[in-house]
Design a protein around this nucleic acid. Sequence first.
DNA 1: CGCAGGTTTGAGAGGAGTCAAGGGTTGTGG
DNA 2: CCACAACCCTTGACTCCTCTCAAACCTGCG
Lengths: 258, 258
Amino acid sequence: MSLSDPNPLQPFVNKLIARSGLGAAEQAAILALPANPVQVQTNRDFVRLGECVDHACFVLAGLVGRFGQNREGSRQITAVHIPTDMVDLHSVVVPGASSALQALSVATILRVPHQALREVARTFPAIAEAFWRECAIDAAVLAEWVVNVGRRSARCRLAHLLCEIACRVEGSGKQVGFAVSFPATQYHLADMTGLTSVHVNRTLRDLRNENVVSLQGRMIHILDWKRLTKIGEFDPTYLHLESGANDSAEAEAEAEVA
Amino acid sequence: MSLSDPNPLQPFVNKLIARSGLGAAEQAAILALPANPVQVQTNRDFVRLGECVDHACFVLAGLVGRFGQNREGSRQITAVHIPTDMVDLHSVVVPGASSALQALSVATILRVPHQALREVARTFPAIAEAFWRECAIDAAVLAEWVVNVGRRSARCRLAHLLCEIACRVEGSGKQVGFAVSFPATQYHLADMTGLTSVHVNRTLRDLRNENVVSLQGRMIHILDWKRLTKIGEFDPTYLHLESGANDSAEAEAEAEVA
DNA sequence: CGCAGGTTTGAGAGGAGTCAAGGGTTGTGG
DNA sequence: CCACAACCCTTGACTCCTCTCAAACCTGCG
């Protein structure tokens, strides 16, 4: 990666472009942002609850979860983040961390100072809009998770989650393939779906026996995508993966004017 | 209201100021936005799923819910909005509605064109940041709802929800009082908490018998706030009601410079 | 006065949780 | 290259919280 792509923030720019479109000046401004790489071990918090952070975290590699908690200590993952996700862009405008961030596998994080992000957003309206849009999409995913956890059976919840992950890992352009990387344990899946790990295991066994999906070796093996989406009642619209060619064009035009 | 407060968007400005602070020019720009009032009857959708909207909706009066859905048709409310909430500010940057909006009681909505909102956001970086911040806070509430629905008992869920509503209706400045307006039915509460209305009824009965809360005549009567927050494991931090006096001051300063 | 929508309660069923134990895998260190 | 430990997966038996189905009972309003 580092040979063909020397700037570690290039994937971030690519992601923003896919959804928002950015002019050359905007792209350059983002690539010029300071970015401090950090290695995080599995099950290690790198942002603690209540902490007031001064940087946002971009996932270069590995898997990251946002954790909420019960008083009794049972945990709920409210968001998962895969490589190319900016985990807490929202913290730029709301710095008090209202939930903890933890690596679900060994992960490489890029720390980008709030100060710098705020500055580019103030200088380039198109960037401010792009950041705002990313947050809006994260919120759409959260809303879908509320539905998932609130109104679907265990079977349906898991199928839906796996569909979402598969789509997000694959990205918009490509077809959903046979297997996608996803180094989460069944405990993690339980915390994402509001179930227990025991029940996740049983449900996953059923799906495997029916030749729908199987999880092995940090990978999701999709055996029957169509059935999986049906079982999970999955409609990828809310992920906004393809993005508006319209919006992009419009933003591009605006960028030129400004 | 209309006598002492002729501009219907004044409450919106007040809300933004409370969290973000805005200069005089920014305030004037927002007050100058076009706003088209609409009456909506109870249980009526005013934004349909999938529809591509060209305006955002501000709640002047009444109660509004954002609805997600199951394939079997059982519904999940992913967000409730009370007067002074801008329901779908996120739609400015993501126009495809990924969930329906429905009035839970008779409501008065102010429609504000996306075009106009986008323009003020592009012209005033402080406004763009304020809008972005509002979306980030909405997302924080959503994350808390995921935890609520995913990892808490029915009793705890309901208590938590009622705490949240009480705090939001009261606003930051005031103490939490004896009773707050909340014209939702037990069906609505069920759809907010991922329960059935039958179980909501039983749980509410228990809370009433214990003299903690009681719901009568479109009002929440708080009988024992301390116990209610304890039962609901409620910590209002995520609502960001008081807001940073810091942030405000900072934004104010920035606004003057710009 | 009667209807529609909301609330209340009962009885029984079932999905998911809890507790407990055994088996597999992975990675590290001797 | 083997051995051990830590972690993860798997399964069984039993419990219980919440759902489902069903039927009254309010209550505000036309």
